[in-house]
Design a protein around this nucleic acid. Sequence first.
DNA 1: GCAGATTCGCTGTAGTCGGCAACAAATCGA
DNA 2: TCGATTTGTTGCCGACTACAGCGAATCTGC
Lengths: 386, 386
Amino acid sequence: MNERATTVEGVRRTNLAEVLRLVHHSGPRSRAVITGETGLNRSTVSDLVGRLVQAGLVEEHEPDPTRRVGRPSPVVAPSPGVVAIGVNPEIDAVEIGAVALGGSVRERVRVPVEQPDVATVVEIVAGVVAGWRGGALAGCRIEGIGVAVPGLVRASDGVVRFAPHLQWRDADIAGPLVTALGIDVVVGNDASLGARAERLFGAAREHEDVVYLNGGASGIGGGLILHGQLIGGVGGYAGEWGQTAASVADAADRRADGGVLEDEVNRARLVQAAGLVAPDDTELRAAVAESPSEALTAETARQRRILTATLGNAVNVLNPAMIVLGGFLAILRDLDPQAFDGEVRRRALAASAEGLEISAAALGADRLLIGAADAAFERLLADPLS
Amino acid sequence: MNERATTVEGVRRTNLAEVLRLVHHSGPRSRAVITGETGLNRSTVSDLVGRLVQAGLVEEHEPDPTRRVGRPSPVVAPSPGVVAIGVNPEIDAVEIGAVALGGSVRERVRVPVEQPDVATVVEIVAGVVAGWRGGALAGCRIEGIGVAVPGLVRASDGVVRFAPHLQWRDADIAGPLVTALGIDVVVGNDASLGARAERLFGAAREHEDVVYLNGGASGIGGGLILHGQLIGGVGGYAGEWGQTAASVADAADRRADGGVLEDEVNRARLVQAAGLVAPDDTELRAAVAESPSEALTAETARQRRILTATLGNAVNVLNPAMIVLGGFLAILRDLDPQAFDGEVRRRALAASAEGLEISAAALGADRLLIGAADAAFERLLADPLS
DNA sequence: GCAGATTCGCTGTAGTCGGCAACAAATCGA
DNA sequence: TCGATTTGTTGCCGACTACAGCGAATCTGC
């Protein structure tokens, strides 16, 4: 995250970045607290905050009425006037959000559209952003646009290599968006950006080593955070758990011959066993929890066996501090969290399971928008007074 | 690796560390080259190198006779007088090496001993190091001791949680070694340190995302390097591929019911199929390569199927730039590297396989000693003029 | 209600560090 | 032998944080 400062001027950039990142990711806090957490001198923090205020990136509010002796320290909060746009094109709609520094969603729109192509997405985003600029976000500073794509995204240039759901292949969405809006654009994999959001503002807050798995209608996506950094791999395609060969201990548990994890641990199979038609996650959760049929019970048990085996492997290889499950994977776990977690632990080395926590995703539908917007903030966070 | 410099004094520490790390990991190079590679100013490099020379950490040699115009630039090389001790306790011996800054092994000793306990290892190391200090390493500066243990090592304090081979459990080897020798001690997992060595001085040189898997008599160990950093996980136990549930597609391929990867992909099974008795890797390699029996051919094919599936999963999840195989895993691959690599690629997403290279380990028996010693150098590299 | 204690913001000074420019040194080519 | 080129060296400058001293704001005890 932080690059090293090899020059004296770079020190200020590093320190400005640290202060801004702190109030953005960890919330408003007093100058005194910032001084303690950064280890910087009071006068230095004063100077840094002053510059950030002058740049309009943070605001200083009157001190918290803490019942403590001493002169009260003003609270430094990220400015709500600095926003980034998060975009999530999906098979049936394009979701767009305006996220302020600090992680709060200020605006949010869902535009239904069947399997949009790049041009359609750009058009929709341009229209929505133009409307916001003249209205709800008038006077705001839009720092960038982050796009969360359900597919493989090349890290080096943001080209969407393959998004099966949208039927995009080698699609450049960043270029047209920049042209249309004149704002910096960042493109990323949806699960990776979801992991980012959960790590910064959700269940995995403050954890440095996180495995995030999300189960959606189209499959299983994942994100990986190690040493506090989002892991992309050499091309940026890391995290594709859904495409791994499932380790199915009992041959009777296998449904798809030669299939991959998302063929076995599969939302559609769960829906079918529940006898539902196109339920959302809330309905599916209810069906699984309340008086399930024998077939549904067997199917959930089967999927849980395979999923826990996969997670056990992940624990052995990565030794994460936390596993975060989203979508129908959380539903599978919530059926009996204790048994589920115990099974994962049983399949892992005792030492590796010691530091492990398993949790359902905390952020709701905003997750992808927040993650995408945060990625768009990255440039600002790295060098606040560019 | 590099921490951020939040203070002006820290800038020098960072830059000193960068220069020393460069000549240590990437080899001797002229001041002019260092200037180009670091982006620092000539005068700054001059100052930094001068300090490192004064501290005895690097030496300046007369310039390379390059046939180029201009004033020749002296070559900066790591001082061979600065060494770290690498230690590798194994089931039948303790191996000890003295590794100089730059990565060259200066001394090396193998002390045969049956299943040594901690006290025995400490005694042996103390004896060997005392001998070196009075002889071969007289006048050398011993910066630290690195111990590569075949087992789980807690990152926070270096305690060996469990080393099945040595039958160590919750063993503190760092404390007694420090007491006996008065030198800083670092303890790490053998495979992780092997990965470190391969990344810095071996096959994975200069790659940022590396999966390393080593197959030994006792099982399969692994190390993981992502974003150029060794991945430890929250407790430091990451990389235990051998204990993962193998994904065996064909039930007929399974040998150990409910077994883990190292039960299926197993050196002993290979040895048995070859009809050998306690061969070393060279003998095993020859047996596998030259006119193998039908049983041996079937066994290698079976193990290759399972291993390639595991590696395919690793590629999908981690998208590494390189997979490095050591020990009998390299033997399995070398039987037909092209087919092996092709199979791994086939099991991975096309995009993830694009940037992938697969290779046998390049460093021989010195690997663990070099990795352990490099870990012991870490403190010096982070802050050269402590 | 007042005085002392405590915490913290503010200001001016000091020390450290890398960049820069000018000069000197060392090599090559003509 | 001279000019061109590259690089080490030196002194100066600008940038940045730490520090100390002072004043401001709040709490506690009497």
